[in-house]
Amino acid sequence: MKKTNLFIIGGLLSIGIVLMAADHLDATAVAGGTADITDVYAFEGANPDNTVFVANVQGLLTPGATAQFDENVLVEFNIDNTGDLVEDLVIQAIPRDGIMYFFGPYAPGTTGLNSTIDDKTQYLGQVEISTGANATTATANGISYFAGLREDAFFFDFAQFNAVIGGTSTAPGGGFNNPGVDAFDNTNVLSIVVEVSNTLLGGTFDHPAGTGVQVFNTWVEAKRKQ
């Protein structure tokens, strides 16, 4: 096992299987940096037996601007199968020389703030990092991969949100306009996408709200090499 010491510098929690969360420039310690996580998505794939995980970093990039993944930052998808908010499986992604390398899903040797990369894990993959409009994908062991520059898919009317919060909205009922104005339109992010068979993701547990739905917890961390 190759051991690399890393620690958390940003992260988001998303409970369930079909959810998303966003945090553009909100994490003050990393805002605008190469480890700033903007969005986390987890949803059913086109094949309903698969789950797609997406982590976006480095938000508000101007189209045409040069942007690169940081080779000292590991992006780690965490999966909790028991509901104790401790990762049971991880999928790790780290770039080297224009290639994004993937490890897992596998049970981590350490949990929490520190991570190691097991380069002998059964599930290994890599994909050339896409830099233009054309997306390069790769598949290994039935797992599909993508990494590269994409248009930010998150929609948020930031100015109107501030007006609603500040009580100055002129929209009907003091709420949002329909349609709103997307503050993230014409901006890019760096995306890491992994599509995995559900058979590789471990078990599930009863939704804590008692809905009868089976779920797992998933969240993403960015960890910088020390």
Score class of each variant (00 low, 15 high):
Gly212Asp: 08
Thr136Ser: 08
Gly10Ala: 09
Thr38Ala: 03
Gly83Gln: 09
Asp39Thr: 10
Val181Tyr: 13
Gly98Gln: 08
Val189Gly: 04
His24Trp: 03
Asp26Pro: 01
Gln92Glu: 11
Gln214Phe: 07
Ala22Lys: 02
Leu190Ser: 03
Gly132Asn: 09
Gly33Leu: 00
Gly212Glu: 06
Ile143Asn: 06
Ile15Tyr: 14
Leu60Arg: 15
Asn47Leu: 00
Asn56Leu: 09
Ile192Phe: 06
Ser197Cys: 01
Ala93Trp: 12
Asp97Phe: 02
Arg96Leu: 03
Pro63Trp: 00
Lys2Trp: 11
Gly11Val: 02
Pro172Tyr: 12
Gly112Ile: 07
Asn5Cys: 00
Tyr101Ile: 09
Gly104Val: 01
Ala29Glu: 14
Phe176Ile: 00
Tyr145Gly: 04
Ile91Ala: 02
Asn141Met: 06
Asp49Tyr: 11
Pro108Ile: 11
Val215Gly: 01
Gly166Ala: 10
Ser14Ile: 02
Ser14Arg: 03
Gln68Cys: 04
Phe77Gln: 00
Gly180Gln: 05
Gly59His: 10
Ala209Met: 11
Asn198Gly: 04
Gly148Ala: 06
Leu60Lys: 15
Leu201Cys: 01
Arg150Asn: 09
Ile79Met: 07
Ala65Glu: 12
Thr34Phe: 09
Gly32Ala: 06
Asp119Thr: 11
Lys2Arg: 12
Arg224Asp: 00
Gly132Val: 04
Asn5Gly: 08
Pro63Ala: 07
Asp185Gln: 13
Gly203Met: 05
Phe154Glu: 01
Val52Asn: 05
Thr66Phe: 14
Thr28Cys: 08
Ala147Asp: 09
Gly11Leu: 05
Phe155Ile: 15
Ser197Gln: 08
Ile37Val: 12
Leu19Val: 05
Ala67Lys: 10
Thr121Glu: 06
Thr170Asn: 11
Phe161His: 12
Leu113Cys: 02
Asn134Glu: 08
Val40Pro: 02
Ile165Asn: 04
Asn81Cys: 05
